[in-house]
Design a protein around this nucleic acid. Structure first.
Length: 318
DNA sequence: CGTGTTTGACCGGCGC
DNA sequence: GCGCCGGTCAAACACG
């Protein structure tokens, strides 16, 4: 297990669905120049090297017990993502990595949790993750409480630029406004053969430190494109949810700065339950506007899950 | 045969 | 207006 030192840092970023042009310009200017990782209008927090994780200001952690108030970091540890797995799909259970059903307290989902525990980019805007007293640890927390190894970590972070702070904190209201804005945009656009101006759905990005590109999040995806990424040796893959009528898309690419980091960006919301399975879970509760009605990050049988995915059990780093 | 991937062409937005 | 680039299409192909 000691050789399984690789960390699987996962950063999650709520991306405002209506990226304002000025923000985009700014992001473009600063792209790849700072610790903040920018990708096509999206701002990501770059997962730190393992040794630096304690210094990461914008990273949540997911382990129990919660970190001290002075730290916004908590760690989630899939101890081994290289064993077994879905080789055919070349993917790893995303939720195996993400495994975020713990410690969201009363929040119905990660995203609801985010809404309740917003974290924004600037240090003074950050807040530590401290479960509310009313929070109840899910029954499934047993997974969390039975760490197998302390050798790897994953984290979730969220950020937004300062201009988007309010939108970040007012997700639902924001989505409604965004829809209105999108309608405006549509009207202003001249009709196109291919489509009226593509509506930019809310997006959500994950940064995962992983050896596999395509993380299995429980949904079925069809790859519909792959493009070379400028200034990166790694291509970007485009996937669409295969469920009829579901327009959710995701992009997967590797960070050029750190090839071990996979950036997965979801766009849109599922209009159907997760087809799986695998112990599990859907991702993206619709309460936040991101998704499947089913979700909520619940492991129905944590013990079984732990057994099946023993090599990826979460465990505290320190 | 159904499903998913690959890949070159195409479209549209944007900056210069 | 032009070129770049991100995103998408769709035909060909692979695979079970």
């Amino acid at each position: 297990m000691n050789e399984m030192k690789q960390n699987h840092n996962i950063s999650i970023v709520r991306i405002n669905s209506v990226e304002k042009r000025e923000e985009k310009k700014e992001l473009t200017r600063t792209a790849l120049k700072t610790e903040n990782f920018n990708m096509a209008n999206s701002t990501f927090i770059t997962p730190p090297p393992t040794s630096d994780i304690d210094h990461m200001p914008n990273v949540f952690s997911l382990s129990t017990p919660p970190p001290p108030p002075t730290s916004s970091i908590f760690d989630m540890i899939p101890c081994d993502i290289t064993t077994g797995g879905d080789q055919k799909a070349g993917s790893l259970g995303f939720m195996d990595l993400l495994d975020i059903n713990q410690d969201f307290g009363a929040s119905a989902s990660l995203f609801e949790w985010f809404n309740q525990n917003p974290v924004v980019g600037s240090p003074q805007q950050q807040q530590s993750f401290v479960p509310s007293p009313a929070s109840t640890v899910p029954e499934t927390s047993e997974v969390l409480n039975n760490p197998a190894t302390p050798n790897s970590s994953a984290s979730i972070s969220s950020s937004s630029n300062e201009a988007g702070e309010d939108a970040f904190q007012q997700v639902k209201a924001g989505d409604q406004e965004e829809e209105q804005d999108q309608d405006k945009n549509k009207k202003q656009l001249k009709p196109k053969k291919r489509s009226q101006k593509r509506l930019r759905e809310p997006r959500f990005a994950f940064m995962t430190k992983s050896e596999v590109d395509h993380l299995d999040d429980g949904y079925r995806w069809r790859k519909y494109g792959q493009k070379a990424v400028k200034n990166s040796p790694y291509p970007r893959s485009y996937y669409r949810c295969t469920s009829a009528g579901c327009g959710v898309k995701k992009r997967v690419e590797r960070s050029s700065d750190d090839p071990s980091i996979v950036v997965t960006t979801y766009e849109g919301q599922h209009i159907h339950p997760s087809p799986i399975i695998r112990g599990s879970i859907g991702i993206f509760a619709d309460s936040s506007g991101f998704g499947a009605a089913t979700s909520s990050f619940v492991f129905p049988q944590p013990a079984l899950y732990q057994q099946k995915h023993a090599s990826m059990i979460l465990c505290p780093l320190r």
